[in-house]
Simulated scan of single mutants.
Amino acid sequence: MKHQPDARPAARARVARNTVSEDLVVDAALRLLDAQDFEQISMRALAAELGVGTMTVYTYFRSKDELLQAVRNRVLGGFHPPTATGEWYERVAACCLSLYEWLIERPAVLRVLFACPPTEGDFAATATTALELILFELRRAGLDRLDSARGYATLLQYTFGAALRQLYAGDATEKAGHVRARLDALSPELHPTIVDLASELARTHENSTEQYVFGLDLIVTGLRVKAGASRENE
C-alpha cells in the first residue's frame, strides 16, 4: 500500500531565486519522495515545494533524471556502519541491521535507490564502507574469496529486499489482520498445517524488524557454519 498524503500542503510563500541552492533543491526532492513515488515528482511540483518558479529549479538541474541522480548520490553517502564489538558474525549482523533500519527510516532512500537509473561510478558510492566491513569480516572468518563475495551479496539482497517489502507493506497491524483473515478462510482439510499455524504466520507481519532479524540470524548462522568448515579443510 503506497502512502498517500492526508491533504495537499498549503502553498509556500515564494522566495527570492538567489536564496535557492543545489542542496536546498535536493532537500526538497527528498521531502517529496518521503511521501510519494518518484513518478509523481515533477520539476513543477518541486518548484512549488520551494516556493519558486519552475525555471529556477532548471537553473540547478537540467532534467528530472539529473536531479534524481543528485538525490541518489546524497542518500548513498548517508549510511555509516556502526562501531560494533564482539565476534565477527556479530559485527556483520550489526552492520546489516543498521543498514536495514537506515533504509526503512526514510521512504525516499529506497525510492531513489530502486527508481533512479544507475550511472557509471554508482558502485563506488553505494555504501562502500559497509561492503569493506562485511567482506573483511567474512574473509577473516575463514571464507574463501568466492564464498565471501557470495555471502556479502546474499546479505545485501536480503536486506534491501526486506526493506523494500516493508516500504510497500503498509500498516503492520492492518497487514497482519488481512493475512490472518485470508488464512482463516482456508480449508483445514486441504491445508491443515497452514491453518494450524495461522496465528504464527500472521505474527510474521506484525513487526518487520523482528522478522528481518530472524532471517538475518539464519543467514549469518549459515555463514558461520561454512566458515568453520573452511577452516577445518585448510
Score class of each variant (00 low, 15 high):
Tyr212Trp: 07
Leu155Gly: 02
His178Ser: 05
Leu33His: 05
Ala181Asn: 11
Ala141His: 10
Ala108Gly: 12
Glu174Tyr: 01
Glu22Trp: 02
Thr119Ser: 14
Thr129Pro: 07
Pro81Gly: 11
Glu174Ser: 05
Leu67Asn: 04
Arg150Met: 13
Ala172Arg: 02
Ala124Ile: 13
Gln211Thr: 13
Leu46Ala: 02
Arg182Thr: 07
Ile134His: 08
Ala149Ser: 12
Tyr60Thr: 04
Thr126Glu: 15
Leu183Asp: 03
Ala35Cys: 06
Met1Lys: 09
Leu30His: 01
Val20Phe: 01
Glu132His: 14
Ala162Asp: 05
Asp6Ser: 12
Tyr152Phe: 14
Arg31Asp: 07
Gly78Gln: 06
Tyr89Met: 06
Leu216Ser: 11
Leu133Thr: 15
Met43Leu: 11
Gln4Lys: 08
Val179Gly: 06
Ser187Gly: 00
Pro188Phe: 03
Ala130Thr: 13
Cys116Arg: 15
Ala93Trp: 04
Gly142Leu: 09
Arg12Gln: 14
Gly78Ala: 14
Val20Ser: 07
Leu138Glu: 07
Gly142Asp: 11
Lys64His: 04
Arg145Phe: 10
Thr59Asn: 12
Tyr158His: 12
Asp171Pro: 07
Ala13Ser: 12
Lys226Tyr: 06
Val220Gln: 01
Gly222Leu: 04
Leu155Val: 02
Ala176Pro: 00
Val195Leu: 11
Arg72Asn: 07
Val25Phe: 08
Lys175Gly: 01
Pro107His: 14
Asp217Arg: 12
Arg14Tyr: 08
Gln69Leu: 00
Pro117Ala: 15
Lys2Phe: 01
Arg224Met: 08
Phe38Leu: 15
Val220Arg: 01
Gly142Pro: 13
Ala48Trp: 13
Ala202Trp: 06
Leu32Trp: 00
Ser187His: 03
Arg91Trp: 12
Pro188Ser: 02
Leu76Pro: 00
Pro192Ile: 12
Leu33Asp: 11
Val213Phe: 05
Val26Ile: 11
Ala28Pro: 02
Glu49Pro: 06
Arg91Gly: 10
Leu190Pro: 00
Leu186Asp: 02
Leu133Arg: 15
Ala108Lys: 00
Arg74Ile: 01
Ala149Arg: 13
Thr159Val: 01
Gly121Met: 05
Thr128Asp: 15
Ala130Asn: 09
Pro118Tyr: 02
Ala13Cys: 02
Ala10Ser: 12
Gln4Gly: 00
Phe136Arg: 10
Tyr60Gln: 03
Ala153Val: 09
Ala127Asp: 02
Asn18Trp: 05
Cys95Asn: 15
Glu200Val: 08
Ser63His: 14
Ala181Asp: 09
Leu190Glu: 10
Leu33Ser: 06
Val220Thr: 01
Thr54Arg: 15
Asn207Cys: 04
Ser230Leu: 06
Tyr168Gly: 00
Met1Phe: 11
Ser63Asp: 09
Gly161Val: 01
Asn233His: 11
Glu39Leu: 10
Asp65Trp: 06
Glu39Thr: 13
Thr209His: 08
Thr204Phe: 04
Thr59Met: 04
Tyr60Lys: 01
Val52Arg: 05
Ala127Asn: 09
Ala149Ile: 14
Ile134Met: 15
Arg44Asp: 07
Gly222His: 07
Arg111Ala: 09
Ala16Met: 09
Leu186Gly: 02
Arg44Leu: 10
Arg203Glu: 11
